[in-house]
């Protein structure tokens, strides 16, 4: 009888995937996602694309908030600088899209150095405050630098063509997002199981102990912040391409809250959680709309007029309820389910 899941060596503790069934199901899922764009209709496909882009951003924030335990209220600022980094390089200076994506990562990373260096020396909520300030300052900066960013008019962005492969069609663009999401997922999982990732988690769990073990707190916090900004910037570039237009209006402050809601709902500090949280949060407003429209047409009308407000209310409610009743998030639920499944009918 199987009595549990035992690890016998350190190598087993850090393997990416520890059992053959998980390998199998992950492969099936990826194949299904590759086929999906040809099967789904345009409406469902747009949700899939949004989910994949959001996964990239959520994984980026997860490195900072989930692994290192620092709150950022201004990640929308990095999305925005990433989108502008791409748009300026590719649309304005006609550079190849791959250079654009690199720029989309490097520009926010540079911005995060400026914001992070002074605020990460301190313990506590200071990063939340400075990032909040940053996300407002950056809006003004972009609006003022008209020679580079066209100010409030924004920049139009074409779908890219990389190595002769055109990502013009919706299906192809979804594949691009899928590839980026999978790459990011592997990158964050590998960061988590390396020395750097363990240092991040040590800082989150007990910073004094981490310091005693020889971790340079300032350097590692800054590293987490910069990595997080880099990945978020890539997500911003994808989002800009998806919108086919980059301006300040396209990146409201609500996106920062949405990202935090994703991490809390999914389960902090877990890549799987970030993915599950993204799926739930992206589909939540739509699902709520469907449920309410069953009751009355009036409710449905309310959703179309006050869509943005209802969305924010839902995010706020979900954040509070999950923190109150299921602080471990969807990943916690999943682990409990797994344990019950393995041990049934015994309790443990």
């Amino acid at each position: 009888m199987r009595t549990g899941d035992y690890k016998q060596s350190y190598g087993e503790l850090v393997t990416l995937i520890d059992s053959p069934p998980v390998w199998l199901w992950s492969t099936v899922l990826v194949l299904a996602l590759v086929v999906a764009p040809y099967v789904l209709n345009a409406y469902a496909l747009s949700f899939l694309t949004i989910i994949l882009i959001t996964v990239v951003g959520a994984l980026g924030l997860n490195i900072l908030t989930g692994y290192t335990g620092l709150i950022s209220l201004g990640h929308v600022g990095f999305l925005l600088t990433g989108a502008y980094g791409y748009a300026v390089l590719v649309s304005k200076y006609q550079l190849p899209p791959l250079v654009g994506f690199l720029g989309a990562g490097l520009v926010p990373a540079a911005a995060s150095l400026i914001v992070g260096a002074p605020s990460l020396r301190l313990k506590g909520l200071y990063l939340a405050i400075t990032t909040l300030a940053f996300s407002f300052i950056i809006n003004t900066v972009i609006l003022e630098m008209r020679w580079l960013t066209n100010g409030a008019r924004g920049i139009a962005v074409q779908r890219p063509e990389i190595f002769g492969v055109s990502f013009e069609s919706d299906a192809a663009f979804t594949h691009l997002c899928l590839a980026t999401a999978i790459l990011t997922l592997f990158a964050t999982l590998n960061i988590r199981r390396s020395r750097v990732g363990r240092a991040f988690v040590a800082i989150r769990d007990n910073d004094t102990a981490a310091r005693v073990m020889g971790i340079n707190l300032h350097a590692y916090k800054l590293l987490a912040f910069v990595t997080s900004a880099f990945i978020t910037g890539i997500a911003g570039a994808l989002y800009g391409i998806y919108l086919s237009f980059v301006n300040v209006e396209g990146f409201p402050f609500l996106l920062s809250i949405e990202a935090l809601a994703i991490l809390i709902v999914g389960g902090l500090g877990s890549a799987l959680g970030a993915v599950l949280g993204t799926v739930l949060i992206v589909l939540l407003p739509e699902a709520t709309r469907l449920v309410f429209s069953l009751f009355s047409a009036q409710m449905d009308a309310m959703f179309t007029t006050g869509a943005q407000e209802l969305k924010s209310m839902l995010y706020g409610l979900v954040i509070i309820l999950f923190l109150r009743f299921q602080p471990r998030g969807l990943v916690g639920v999943w682990h409990d389910l797994k344990r019950t499944w393995v041990n049934w009918p015994l309790r443990y």
Partner: peptide, 28 residues
């Protein structure tokens, strides 16, 4: 009050959630 004794991270996040709810309630 239900969050009393929870980590600061969680309580602060709750105030952020509360902020978003109050903010959008104005429109309704």
């Amino acid at each position: 009050r239900p969050m009393l004794g929870e980590p600061v991270f969680a309580t602060v996040m709750v105030t952020i959630g509360l902020a978003v709810i109050l903010r959008s309630s104005i429109n309704f």
